[in-house]
């Protein structure tokens, strides 16, 4: 199996690698894993008082597709509202990166990670979980 150019680009030059202080009130952290591969992915968002995602960081231990998927999501969510970010679908990630069928679950993991980060931020800040799924 060969990786697409976009996957290789994100893999070799991952955007936004790193961490925010987890205890920071404006930070939401999503920690998810894919046990079938033994992958682990941490995705964090820094949210402004207006509810806009100002910055995002990730740290992923996994295959190239998992790294590329999380790297891409950190790029996409910047400047979005929480609701907009929550609407990112794994299919968009997979399509953008041209992931082969066996790697689709890597994009699912990235979608689950951003959702978990948003949920964590909302919980921390006493915001109700909206029903928009």
């Amino acid at each position: 199996m060969s990786y697409s150019e976009k996957v290789i680009d994100h893999y070799e030059h991952p955007r936004n690698v790193g961490s925010f202080q987890k205890s920071d009130g404006g930070v939401g952290t999503g920690l998810v894993g894919a046990p079938a591969c033994g992958d682990v992915m941490k995705l964090q968002i820094k949210v402004s008082a207006e509810g806009i995602i100002e910055d995002a960081k990730f740290k992923t231990f996994g295959c190239g597709s998992a790294i590329a998927s999380s790297s891409l999501v950190t790029e996409w969510v910047k400047g979005k509202t929480l609701d907009e970010a929550a609407k990112i679908k794994n299919t968009e990630i997979a399509q953008h990166l041209a992931l082969p069928p066996v790697k689709i679950h890597c994009s699912v993991l990235a979608e689950d990670a951003i959702k978990a980060a948003i949920a964590d931020y909302k919980k921390k800040n006493g915001l109700e979980e909206d029903a928009a799924q």
């Binding site: 920690l31 998810v32 894993g33 894919a34 046990p35 079938a36 033994g38 682990v40 941490k42 740290k59 231990f61 689709i104 679950h105 699912v108 993991l109 689950d112 978990a116």
Partner: peptide, 18 residues
């Protein structure tokens, strides 16, 4: 879990793995 392409969220397990 290990059979399928599912996502796990057990924080203790994932913190340790990370």
């Amino acid at each position: 879990d290990v059979d399928q392409a599912a996502t796990v969220t057990d924080p203790e397990l994932l913190m340790e793995a990370m």
